[in-house]
């Protein structure tokens, strides 16, 4: 039940976009049509699902204070947590590269639809943010971390597909010229965020 709770919480309440504004750049740039935004959303979910658990293991067995004690008891006092930023981003960049090569090899059709987005994901704040929140919130085991990563990814997917669907309809409405494009997208995202605030406090 705890797993399900974490999953629901990270999809709706701690939504990456509406509560923490992570990944806004690609969210604003790629949300012009539902099809491409769905592709990007799936890619982000996929990368989060791999990188966050890997970074959890790195954090637990290499970086956090006293983590190296499994190697030898004399290393129990070592605290490498200041290195976490550079290691996390290196892991993310490397995994994105590997995922890209694997998909290209085994599923050319998926590669053609996701291909252009994958390199972008290495510098998507939602992916690094997922790892940093995982470190900050102190989840107790890898199952919880995986649920959190999956939930965050799906929450992001939900947000970007939602805004893309609205933007497709917006083309036919009379918007003040100064608000066209980015301006109205910001305001609509704000309104969607208000709607998502109603999930606050729900506990399963």
């Amino acid at each position: 039940m705890e797993y399900f709770n974490i999953f629901i919480k990270s999809v709706f309440i701690d939504n990456m976009i509406f509560a923490f504004f992570l990944g806004m750049c690609s969210y604003l740039a790629v949300s012009k049509t539902v099809k491409t935004s769905f592709g990007l959303g799936v890619a982000v979910t996929f990368v989060l699902l791999i990188t966050v658990p890997v970074n959890y293991l790195i954090d637990k067995y290499l970086l956090s204070p006293g983590a190296l004690s499994w190697l030898s008891p004399s290393l129990a006092g070592v605290d490498l947590s200041f290195l976490s930023l550079i290691l996390f981003i290196a892991v993310i960049a490397a995994i994105v590269q590997i995922v890209e090569m694997v998909i290209e090899r085994y599923s050319p059709s998926l590669y053609n639809s996701l291909g252009i987005f994958l390199p972008l994901i290495a510098v998507n704040c939602a992916v690094l943010g997922g790892s940093l929140f995982m470190q900050q919130r102190g989840y107790s085991n890898i199952g919880e971390v995986t649920c959190f990563a999956l939930g965050s990814g799906i929450g992001w997917l939900l947000a970007i597909v939602g805004i893309a669907a609205i933007r497709e309809r917006l083309r036919y409405s009379a918007i003040p010229p100064a608000l066209k494009g980015v301006g109205i997208t910001f305001i609509i995202t704000g309104l969607m965020g208000i709607a998502f605030m109603s999930f606050m406090g729900i506990k399963l």
Partner: peptide, 19 residues
């Protein structure tokens, strides 16, 4: 000070600047 208002405020700044 809630999250969604920040988005709406940026929208308004963009509106003012572009008009």
């Amino acid at each position: 000070i809630m999250a969604p208002m920040a988005l709406i405020l940026v929208g308004i700044i963009i509106w003012i600047q572009r008009s």
